[in-house]
């Protein structure tokens, strides 16, 4: 087996593993369906003087045993999936004799690993285990798309991509995209949870989630990390474009949609600090920005023929 085909096999295996992890997390959600909330908020202290807040779901969200077992299996499988994915990407780099970020197949598989890595970091630091289902869903979709739609054989890069700025640009884009994704997913969960809290129907899986406030804050944390990085991504892209094409900004579709994504997240950050916009509307902007990012990453390449689409699918 060549290194290239070993890499391809690892990526497909990772996709299957993400999918299996997804199944376990789905079982976890399904089993938690009938649980009543016992929430008296981990976060009672919030707002009022706002001293320490518990970021981790409190012990009061007593989940049924079985759901916990599935959650753990899902988590362990996610670790395995990410590890196999990483091996596949490294092998790809070895096979191609270059950094493995030259086409959509490579971006997307790397993005899945970074999503997983950010999730592990969040689990370790802030107890983000409740993101298991959406994260494995992202991993399964990204690697699934990579293996089926975006696959291309290993090849060297065209001259325009021979640039350190390109590599920096792509890596920054992947990392900010991963953080945007988890932040966007958190914003979706926030909307669901906030609605349930308003209606007083926090039960089932929602009882396993932290309060809307905590979800919102976690999402913010990721987006506040991603946004400066995304700004830098665009700047690095502009520097690269100046070297490669002799202009730092040319309103190429890719550039335009990057700017639109940027402006939406700037709107999100402002919305979060403005009465009447914080909460629901801010979350909707975060979700819009998240959608915009992936549209730009995938949709624009497939739909429009700009200077950026020559990286091969």
């Amino acid at each position: 087996m060549t290194v290239a085909s070993f890499s391809a096999l690892a990526i497909v295996t990772a996709a299957v593993l993400y999918l299996m992890a997804l199944v376990f997390h789905t079982l976890e959600w399904a089993l938690a369906r009938n649980v009543e909330a016992t929430v008296t908020e981990s976060v009672a202290a919030d707002g009022k003087g706002g001293v320490a807040l518990l970021d981790k779901p409190s012990a009061e969200h007593v989940p049924p045993r079985k759901a916990d077992v599935y959650a753990r299996m899902g988590f362990n499988l996610t670790i395995l999936a990410a590890a196999v994915d990483l091996v596949g990407i490294v092998a790809r780099g070895i096979a191609a004799h270059r950094a493995p970020w030259g086409n959509m197949y490579e971006f997307v598989t790397t993005a899945a690993v970074v999503v997983a890595a950010l999730y592990f970091f969040g689990v370790w630091k802030w107890g983000l285990r409740w993101l298991g289902l959406p994260v494995t869903l992202l991993g399964a979709i990204l690697n699934g798309l990579a293996a089926t739609v975006f696959y291309v054989a290993v090849a060297p890069l065209v001259p325009a991509l021979h640039s350190v700025w390109f590599m920096i640009h792509i890596l920054a884009a992947i990392v900010s995209g991963a953080a945007f994704s988890i932040g966007g997913v958190a914003a979706i969960l926030y909307l669901i949870q906030a609605r349930a809290e308003r209606k007083g129907t926090v039960k089932g899986y929602l009882a396993r989630l932290p309060t809307a406030d905590v979800i919102d804050r976690m999402g913010y944390r990721l987006l506040a990390f991603a946004f400066p990085l995304w700004t830098f991504t665009i700047a690095a892209g502009a520097i690269w474009a100046e070297y490669a094409w002799g202009r730092y900004w040319g309103w190429d579709p890719k550039e335009t949609w990057s700017l639109v994504t940027w402006v939406i997240f700037a709107g999100y950050l402002h919305a979060r600090a403005t009465a009447g916009w914080k909460g629901r509307r801010a979350a909707m902007l975060a979700i819009l920005g998240f959608a915009m990012f992936w549209w730009n990453f995938i949709g624009v390449n497939l739909v429009f023929a700009g200077l950026h689409s020559y990286a091969g699918i």
Binding site: P253, T256, W257, L259, V263, A266, H270, A271, W277
Partner: peptide, 15 residues
Amino acid sequence: IILLLLLAVAAIPGG
């Protein structure tokens, strides 16, 4: 915020 969102919307046709 509104101007930022307007800018985003206005940039879209060019994309």
